[in-house]
């Protein structure tokens, strides 16, 4: 399993939504850290989790696979997954892999939070 240089910080801007700030590299080696952050994000009943990719420095195909498994987990628990902070390069990767069809992408945190009732 490749080593992952990743840090995640979980914030709760409002009772229904949590934000996970992602910093560093997203690859398959980051699975435990990402799933741990997700567990923390939904631990008190948040119905939506917003991923902040503003600090993303590197992502490989293993990282995309990790996001898919996270998305499936969220869907099975009835939670929405949203994203913001992606630069043009990573937006294109989301489009290429068609991940953008399942995870709504916003320009900034305010617009992402505004989409959650």
């Amino acid at each position: 399993m490749p080593e992952s240089r990743i840090a995640m910080n979980v914030r709760k801007p409002n009772p229904t939504t949590s934000v996970i700030d992602i910093e560093g590299e997203v690859n398959a080696g980051g699975e435990l850290i990402l799933m741990g952050a997700y567990n923390e994000a939904v631990s008190d009943g948040a119905s939506a989790v917003v991923l902040n990719f503003g600090g993303l420095e590197y992502m490989n195909s293993g990282g995309i696979g990790l996001l898919v498994t996270l998305l499936i987990r969220a869907q099975r628990q009835g939670q929405r997954l949203l994203a913001f902070g992606l630069n043009d390069h990573y937006r294109q990767i989301f489009e290429l892999t068609r991940l953008d069809e399942a995870i709504r992408i916003f320009d900034g945190e305010a617009s992402a939070l505004g989409d959650v009732p």
Binding site: R5, A7, R11, E57, Y58, M59
Partner: peptide, 20 residues
């Protein structure tokens, strides 16, 4: 505060587009 364990990204990793 919810900060998770990490290896601190080094400065040379700060250019994302150039890397991948």
């Amino acid at each position: 505060n919810g900060e998770r364990e990490m290896t601190t990204p080094s400065d040379e990793l700060r250019d994302p587009v150039a890397r991948d």
